[in-house]
Write a protein that binds this DNA or RNA. Structure first.
Lengths: 163, 163
DNA sequence: AGCGATTCGTTTAATCTTCAACCATGCGAT
DNA sequence: ATCGCATGGTTGAAGATTAAACGAATCGCT
C-alpha cells in the first residue's frame, strides 16, 4: 500500500518483516517436516500429531472431540484423518462405553510401533530446522508468543489438554 | 514416548511445550485470518498474499516463478491460485516479452481495489491475534527465529525478495 | 416421563493442494 | 546449426481439507 486514506493501524516495517518471515518460515518448515515424515514413514504431519496425542493418553485411547481439540483441528478433519489411520491399521475405532454418541480412537500396537519409528525423524527435523538454529531465549519467546496467540483464539474450549 | 532405547536427542519439556504451542497457535491463527478474509472479502490467505506481492512489484506485475518463490509455494500451486484470481478478474496473465517461456501475472485495477479493501481487515487481524498480544521484543525474537528457519530451508533459491 | 436444545461424530460435495507427466522455450557445448 | 539438457509453466488426477447437512444420543428443564 502506498497512499493511505484509511485510518488503519498498519504494521511498521519491522513488524511487516517479522510477519512475512513467519509466513515464509512456517510454510517451509511445515512442508519440510511433512515431506520427511511422508518419504521416510508414510505419515503426514497431521497424522503424526494424532498418533502422538493418542500415545500419551490413558490406554492410548481418546474421544474424537478431545482429540480434535487437542490438535485444534475440526471434527470433520479428525474423522477423515482417523479414517485413514484406521485403514492403515494404526488406529482402531470403538463405541464409547459411557456415552452412546461417543467414539474412541485407540492406537494399535502397529500404530505405536509406527510412531516409535517416525518420532526420531520428526524430532531431528524440528531440531535441525528450528530448535538448534536459534538461541534458547528466542525460542522461549516463540513459546510465549504462540501460547498467547492460542489462548486468545480459544474461547469455548473445555479440553485444556491443548498444551 | 516413555521408554527410550534410541539415541535420539529428544526435546526437553520446555522445547516440547514451545513446539506444541507453535503448532496449535499457528493453526488457529491461520485459520482465523483465512476465515476473516473469506467471509468479508471472498479471498483466501494464499490469494491475498499473492495480491500483496503483485501490488508491490514494478507495474504490479511478476513472473510466475518469482511469485512462487516469494510466497514459497510450488509453481503448480501458484498456477492454480492465479487461475482462480484471473477468473475472478483480479489478475491477468500475459506472455513475457523477454522470455518466450515466461508468463507474467499483472494485478488489474479491480484486483488492486480488492486488495485495498481487504488489507485493513487482514492487518487488523494480524495485530489483534498476534502483534498487539505480546511485547515487542518477543515479536522481534519471532522474526529472528523464522528468518533463520527460512534461511536454513532455502537452498537453491535465486529470488531473494522473499522477505 | 417428555420435549427441545446441544453435543457427537459422520457423510457428501466443493474447494484447495500436491504429484507426476508433459510441452515449449531457451541455454551451452560441440 | 544442432543436440542434449535445464528451466518455465501448465495440466489433470489424486489426495487432503473445509463446509454444510444430517442422524443419533444426551442433557436440562419442566
Amino acid at each position: 500500500m502506498t497512499t493511505d486514506t484509511t485510518d488503519t493501524a498498519w504494521l511498521d516495517q519491522g513488524q511487516q518483516r517479522t510477519w512475512r518471515a513467519f509466513l515464509v518460515g512456517t510454510t517451509l518448515l511445515m512442508e519440510r517436516l511433512d515431506r520427511d515424515l511422508r518419504d521416510q514413514h508414510n505419515l503426514s504431519m497431521p497424522e503424526y500429531e494424532i498418533l502422538v496425542r493418542l500415545s500419551e493418553a490413558d490406554s492410548r485411547c481418546m474421544r474424537m472431540a478431545v482429540l480434535a481439540d487437542s490438535v485444534s483441528h475440526s471434527r470433520s478433519r479428525v474423522t477423515h484423518t482417523i479414517a485413514r489411520l484406521e485403514k492403515a491399521g494404526l488406529v482402531i475405532r470403538a463405541a464409547c462405553q459411557s456415552d452412546g454418541r461417543g467414539v474412541e480412537a485407540r492406537l494399535t500396537e502397529k500404530g505405536f510401533a509406527a510412531l516409535e519409528e517416525a518420532a526420531p525423524t520428526h524430532v531431528a527435523g524440528v531440531r535441525r530446522f528450528l530448535v538448534d538454529l536459534v538461541p534458547e531465549e528466542d525460542l522461549e519467546a516463540v513459546g510465549r508468543v504462540f501460547n498467547a496467540v492460542a489462548d486468545s483464539l480459544i474461547e469455548q474450549n473445555p479440553a485444556m489438554d491443548v498444551r
